[in-house]
Computed example of a mutant assay.
Amino acid sequence: MRPPHLKNRSALLDCIRAVAIIMVIGFHVALEYPRADLDTAALFLRRYGLLGVAIFFPLSGYLISSFLLTRDYPGFLKTFFLRRFFRIVPLYFVAVTVFALAMIVTQTDLHLLDRMWVPYSFLTAWIIFFQGEATVPYTITWSLSVEEFAYIVFGLVTWFSRRSMPAFLIAVSILPVLLRWYLYWESANGNHTPAIHYFPLARIDAIATGGVLAWLMVRKTPLKYLLLGFGGLTVIAALLVQQNPVLNRTFLYSLTTFGTCFCIALFDGGRWRMYSNAVIEVIANIGFYSYFTYLFHYFNVYALFAVVHKLFATPPSFWIMTLAALALTHAQAMISYKIFEGPMMRFGRKLEGRKETGGKKAAGMVPVPMATGADIPKPPET
């Protein structure tokens, strides 16, 4: 039996989150080992593990756009922003504060302590792009910069003109790809532009593409057309990344986006939507807590390796350390959700001032909470 707070969720979508967060943890653990000590799978994670972040983006876009496109009751934007705020901001501020305290305790990168305003203000990705990665502490918060930017822009577009939202999503699915190609082309031709992959304006296409998928599902587009479309785009992107370094760096993110959208359409648009079994439940549980895991896993990776280096001449294998980091962070995430995140989100629900009784429900969709900031399940009835 699923825990009460998981009953209305798509387990398969949570499995996508689980894959994404395991990739990110694997990447950070792999960086602690010499390449010679890693097997083929670990080397893959060392090279491509950060694409796990790119998996979160279209999933986030799919869920927030589903909400924006299918709710029409008065005050739905208030509900949207309140849910985004209480899902993301309280835990985020805790994580940034813990990072600042860790800098002081470990006497690490103290010269960046006066730059903590950057992650606190959700500007990490912007500042990295314009001033360089070395100027910003707690750099993994860059992805939250991209997502928060998308939430604000998508919400405002819906507020000004809901009817313009589909055209906006399509445009934003295309234009950042062109910008990304231009920036990489400029960099390859000697006009060095650092940290392009952090730049929100060059990465928001992934979130918008997830929104396009949501719009197509709201329109009840047949599943076979969705799979053919996103499957075809995945193949095209895979071919483009083989052409030259500029196209590789431009379309590698698009490849991840289209592949993720294909999986979302398959899992949430057809007969598989509510499918589950024991193995899927275990993996989905990891995905459910992936927001906390993303923000806090590196603290545990750092601590585990610090302890291991004191106790052993050489650390255990990559896979043992990855599993240990995942298990430790997951246990912390479960505690955090029970005593902090869950109560904060329920408090946010009270501020909405109304129960959601109106609004259109899109075919094949269930309001699903997301570890990176979508709807949360209602507390179990008492």
Results as ranks from 00 to 15, higher is better:
Tyr92Thr: 07
Thr70Cys: 12
Ile104Ser: 02
Gly132Asp: 12
Phe85Met: 09
Met116Cys: 12
Val105Cys: 00
Phe122Glu: 13
Asp114Cys: 03
Ile88Trp: 07
Leu101Phe: 14
Thr141Pro: 09
Gly155Trp: 10
Gly75Met: 02
Asp72Cys: 12
Leu175Gln: 02
Val89Leu: 12
Met165Gln: 13
Ile140Gly: 00
Leu156Met: 11
Val146Trp: 07
Ala167Asn: 10
Val157His: 09
Ile152Phe: 13
Arg162Gln: 13
Leu175Lys: 01
Leu179Lys: 01
Phe93Ala: 10
Ala95Gly: 04
Thr139Trp: 04
Val89Ala: 08
Val98Ile: 15
Ile170Glu: 03
Phe160Gly: 00
Ala150Val: 13
Tyr151Thr: 03
Arg87Gln: 04
Leu123His: 06
Phe160Ala: 11
Asp72Lys: 06
Asp114Ala: 06
Leu113Gly: 07
Ile128Met: 14
Ser121Pro: 10
Arg83Leu: 09
Tyr138Gln: 10
Ile128Thr: 12
Val105Gln: 11
Leu179Ile: 10
Thr70Val: 00
Phe160Asp: 03
Leu68Trp: 10
Thr70Arg: 05
Leu82Glu: 05
Tyr120Asn: 08
Ser173His: 06
Ser161Cys: 05
Gly132Ile: 05
Thr135Cys: 03
Arg180Asp: 14
Ser143Tyr: 08
Gly75Ser: 05
Pro90Gln: 06
Ile174Gln: 05
Val98Asp: 08
Met165Tyr: 12
Ile140Cys: 01
Thr106Tyr: 08
Ala102Trp: 14
Phe81Trp: 14
Arg71Gln: 15
Glu147Leu: 02
Val96Asp: 07
His111Gln: 13
Leu113Gln: 08
Val172Leu: 13
Asp114Val: 05
Tyr73Ser: 03
Trp117Cys: 05
Ser164Tyr: 14
Ala134Cys: 00
Phe93Asn: 01
Ala100Pro: 11
Trp159Lys: 01
Ile152Gly: 00
Pro176Glu: 06
Phe154Gly: 00
Leu113Val: 14
Asp72Asn: 15
Val89Gln: 03
Arg71Thr: 15
Ile152Ser: 00
Leu144Gly: 11
Thr135Asn: 11
Val172Lys: 00
Ser161Met: 02
Tyr92His: 05
Arg115Cys: 08
Leu144Ala: 05
